[in-house]
Design a binder for these strands. Structure first.
Lengths: 205, 205
DNA sequence: GTCTATATCTTGATAGAC
DNA sequence: GTCTATCAAGATATAGAC
């Protein structure tokens, strides 16, 4: 029996970072089923963790878990998008290519939301001030980072920030339409529109 | 007591269309709290209707109610946006002004979603095929209608549809950012970006 | 058709054995 | 720190009196 137990504990793997597995499972579930639509028991099961472990690692309960999901995803995505864009000299081409890559991601995820915080942001905007603030800060960080990239490319400062905001809005909205239609078309169309936005801003209107 | 009852039934008003009040209450709650975040009891209470009436008028339960909310809102909004745009000769100005009006609406709603189906669309895209299809059809109708408006303004057909899709995506995404930040800024910035998108399409790229 | 009471299930969360 | 049992409250849905 002790041999069987050893095999079990080896097969069930992840002996170390149960906390990380819970966080990862929550990210995956939130982007498919949303925040209110995901249960704590589902998260525990998907993480292969006992139910009680969630409250051991996240004593603040679902709200704390939700906030950590939003904030950690925010950092991961900031690095990801920044990594995709910065190598480019041409800001217009960089922006368009990010949308094309996003279309591939959308399909690979079988039309789950490529943005891990969007569905949550919509759900909590009027219902949970703590989470609303977290999503707002994450969106704000994204906008700042991309605005700096556009500014470095020669777009003057008030316009750079507005352009960044609109490009992110366009991407999020295109994800929404693409998920509803189960099609990458809206994201590919948005790629050309995003190029037009950046091009206009670079031309000083 | 019968006099009192008469007063009651007069004050509680809506003696006729309980069904319509339920539908209206559901629209209001869904756009603030989402689909999974709204309970049937809350809807009944907000509608001033007895709980059982929901299942009398919507025997298909929450899914049927959700679908009717999506479809009826879709028609209402199609008429609304079309009514805002069609008087204009200049497609670029018309588009920009719709966004400015939308920013006002966002604030008037205290940052509830001006689009009554967006939050629901995000929640159900991977979890409820019936509702997902309803949201997809509504978005599709909007895109068609606006595409026809752009096409009538001189934008050739494949581009007109892509432009309409991107303008709607931009609007939805701007609502998302604006709600999260509790600010109309993202929608106002998107107004200028939307103008750039339509202008580029009208210029044949 | 209106309205109440209830059945059944699931939720987030806690207690406590191990 | 792992895991189970359980709680109270909420959900959707139904039955049935009026």
């Amino acid at each position: 029996m002790s041999a069987s137990k050893d095999i079990e504990s080896t097969r069930d793997a992840g002996p170390r970072d149960t906390r990380q597995r819970i966080l990862t499972a929550a990210v995956e579930l939130f982007r498919r089923r949303g925040y209110t639509g995901t249960g704590m028991k589902q998260i525990a099961e998907a993480a292969g963790a006992p139910f009680g472990s969630i409250y051991h690692f996240f004593p603040g309960g679902k709200a704390q878990l939700g906030e950590e999901v939003v904030r950690t995803s925010g950092v991961v995505y900031l690095d990801l998008v920044a990594g995709l864009m910065t190598p480019y000299e041409d800001r217009v081409a960089a922006t368009a290519d990010v949308f094309i890559a996003a279309a591939d991601t959308l399909r690979e995820l079988d039309f789950a939301d490529p943005c891990p915080i969007a569905t949550v942001a919509m759900e909590v905007a009027n219902t949970n001030e703590q989470l609303r603030q977290a999503t707002s800060e994450v969106f704000g960080n994204w906008i700042e980072e991309i605005a700096a990239y556009y500014a470095a490319g020669g777009i003057p400062e008030p316009a750079a920030r507005e352009t960044a905001s609109s490009v992110i809005a366009l991407l999020e909205g295109a994800f929404m339409l693409g998920r509803a239609a189960r099609s990458t078309e809206p994201v590919l169309a948005a790629s050309r529109a995003a190029a037009a936005i950046v091009r206009a801003a670079a031309a000083g209107e």
